[in-house]
């Protein structure tokens, strides 16, 4: 008895130490960035800053708040996240519902399901992607960031599996009471699937917040860049080879690290805040007790 409880507490101890160490590993880089953003730039390039600010200053933050480009890009990202997430979720629910039906109810279900899966496995590549967006006239508009990824097949699969796991009796009960597909979907299925929808919501949110490549390729003016693209373009790695007299201005960009750190931190903040609120949905029990007897 004693040895097993000793083993258990050893395991628990190890577990805690391990998990705490892992979380510290994840948090420290962010703390470092935060410390840099509150330090003077001389202290930063001297490497004096680790996890606590040196020569505490708000200079970087006041500089950013005066910087219209940062604020515009935040605005564009917010627009993109809101529009993109709504469209994504709406389309995912609408697509997942029929695909979750049995073949007896929806005869070509398998064929359609494979049609969607096909797009995960194969895609046209960069150039056709670009040309499609170009020729549909979306280039340089907010819709170029939102529409190309609007049907997220992975999310659809998640959701359709969740729909299938719901007790069939619920649906049958709804039909008996005279509900059509539309009512069943929105009044029964969707409210019951909140945990899955929250998961998808979080995925979509993070994905829209973080993606920078499409912004770079599809937006023609830096003024139309979403936040991630804007950050990517200022946090460039300098190529010191072949630096010419005309490129000397690039050198000025290096000692700019404190303001970069501040912008990175502000850029991560909203998504950090969103996480804990959505997290709890993952854990929630799913359909406990909905059908009795």
């Amino acid at each position: 008895m004693q040895s097993s409880s000793w083993g258990r507490s050893a395991f628990q101890l190890f577990n805690y130490v391990f998990l705490i160490a892992m979380s510290i590993l994840c948090i420290l880089p962010l703390v470092h960035i935060l410390a840099i953003s509150f330090s003077s730039s001389a202290a930063v390039s001297a490497g004096d800053v680790t996890f606590w600010p040196v020569d505490f200053t708000f200079k970087s933050y006041s500089f950013i708040l005066d910087n219209p480009k940062f604020l515009t890009s935040v605005g564009i990202t917010l627009e993109r996240v809101v529009i993109g997430t709504i469209i994504n979720l709406f389309l995912a629910v609408l697509t997942a519902y029929p695909l979750s039906k049995e073949v007896s109810a929806f005869r070509h279900r398998t064929w359609f399901a494979w049609l969607f899966v096909f797009t995960i496995l194969f895609n046209g590549g960069l150039i056709p992607w670009y040309m499609t967006i170009k020729m549909t006239g979306l280039i340089d508009t907010i819709w170029a960031l939102v529409l190309p990824g609007a049907v997220a097949v992975f999310h659809i699969i998640l959701l359709l599996n969740f729909f299938r796991a719901l007790p069939k009796e619920l649906e049958e009960a709804a039909f008996v009471d005279g509900a059509g597909h539309w009512t069943t979907l929105w009044r029964i299925m969707v409210p019951l699937s909140m945990p899955a929808i929250a998961t998808i919501l979080l995925f979509t949110l993070v994905q829209h917040w973080n993606s920078w490549f499409d912004g770079m390729i599809l937006m023609n003016k830096p003024a139309h860049y979403p936040l991630a693209t804007y950050l990517q373009s200022i946090i460039i790695k300098l190529d010191f080879e072949n630096l010419r007299q005309e490129d000397i201005y690039l050198l000025g960009l290096i000692s700019d690290r404190t303001s970069k750190a501040a912008q990175i931190f502000l850029g991560t903040l909203p998504i950090l805040l969103a996480y804990p609120f959505l997290q709890k949905h993952f854990m929630k029990g799913i359909v406990l007790g909905s059908v009795k007897g």
Binding site: I127, D140, I217, M219, N220, P222, Q232, S233, K237
Partner: peptide
């Protein structure tokens, strides 16, 4: 028509 930072410019030009 478009512009982007030096680091991405030639990639975008390739597209």
């Amino acid at each position: 028509d478009w512009t982007t930072n030096e680091g991405s410019y030639f990639n975008k030009m390739n597209v």
